[in-house]
Design a protein around this nucleic acid. Structure first.
Length: 319
DNA sequence: AATGCCTTCAACCGCGGGTGT
DNA sequence: CACACCCGCGGTTGAAGGCAT
């Protein structure tokens, strides 16, 4: 994906570059805008490795980047940071997003704090492009009780079932950042030894460009969420999913104990346990204590949902 | 093959709050 | 206190690839 985006970026950079940023327009007419180039990425990564992050406007100037501090911060936090996790959301992550959004609404930054490696921007995009669209497909608002109930009793139980095997497989962006950081470390080491930093920088950029070209050849489509998410239990993905559940899930669970108002918690209207409700739903149009919900789910099943509803792939195909 | 619409997501924008002087 | 600057957040845009016709 990164490779795809990066190649897009390179192609589009010239078209968008040269614009003026509102913050510093008057004094810095040469400021670049639009997609970042590999060279800019390298400059930013190298500078942060040496000097740390923060003080973004100063950082941008000191690093010699013709970018606003804002743009540097965004690029680092959303893309270049070594711990940014790319690729499709796992079932666990989807569950968490659904739940946390019911609590906090569009507090993307707060939600992102509970999904290690995910950025607020990514979660926001996920919500807007996938979840809202799904809600629209079901003829209800993503913030409506009806949609939340559908998520709680239909979608989430299924995600739980398949979440065990969840894995975000292809991670070209992770490889890209690994390459950047590896090269950056190697560059510093070699430069220190040979005192030939300039030549190395050129070779480094060429190496990255070459690697990116290779990635572009093999990068996968970005819209095959379901199949990519669950087809391969890669170690990395499993570890990260585990981390999320152990660390942040734990934190969230503690809050849950206090608040008992999350999507997972059976609402006061339903005295069945969540497991029972899930089992009933999974059995196909089970009866809920809430007659309105029960009726709606049943109608839902008859009119729209097929057996394939339980395949996540089919959920997304509905969009 | 050509065209146009749809989808995705990186990047930008505007704003509010925090901090320093 | 007032002002300027910076940071971070949420909403929006637009480029590019995918897909249908």
């Amino acid at each position: 994906m990164a490779a795809t985006q990066q190649s897009r970026s390179s192609a589009a950079a010239a078209a968008k570059a040269g614009g003026a940023d509102h913050e510093q327009t008057e004094h810095k007419p040469e400021l670049r805008r639009g997609p970042w180039t590999v060279d800019e990425d390298l400059t930013l990564v190298n500078y942060i490795a040496d000097n740390g992050e923060g003080r973004w406007n100063n950082l941008a100037r000191a690093a010699g980047l013709k970018r606003t501090g804002k743009s540097c911060r965004l690029r680092w936090l959303n893309y270049l940071r070594p711990d940014v996790k790319r690729g499709n959301f796992s079932a666990d992550e989807q569950l968490l997003i659904l739940d946390l959004h019911t609590r906090w609404g569009n507090r993307w930054s707060k939600i992102a704090q509970h999904l290690p490696g995910r950025t607020d921007n990514e979660i926001k995009n996920y919500w807007r492009t996938r979840v809202q669209k799904h809600a629209k497909q079901l003829n209800c608002d993503a913030n409506s009780k009806r949609f939340k109930d559908a998520m709680r009793y239909l979608w989430m139980p299924h995600l739980v079932d398949i979440g065990v095997a969840a894995a975000a497989a292809d991670d070209d962006d992770y490889q890209y950042r690994r390459l950047l950081h590896h090269q950056q470390a190697q560059q510093q080491q070699e430069a220190a030894a040979a005192g030939a930093a300039n030549d190395l920088a050129a070779g480094y950029a060429a190496d990255v460009q070459h690697a990116l070209a290779g990635m572009a050849m093999t990068s996968s489509s970005s819209d095959s969420l379901a199949s990519e998410s669950f087809e391969d239990g890669s170690l990395f993905a499993n570890v990260r999913a585990g981390e999320m559940l152990m660390n942040n899930g734990g934190d969230w669970a503690a809050q849950e104990a206090n608040q008992n108002q999350g999507l997972w918690a059976p609402s006061s209207d339903h005295d069945q346990s969540a497991v029972q409700v899930q089992a009933a739903a999974a059995a196909g149009g089970g009866q809920f204590q809430d007659p309105e919900l029960s009726g709606w789910v049943q109608g839902f099943s008859e009119s729209i949902i097929t057996d394939n509803f339980w395949a996540l792939e089919e959920i997304w195909k509905m969009q």
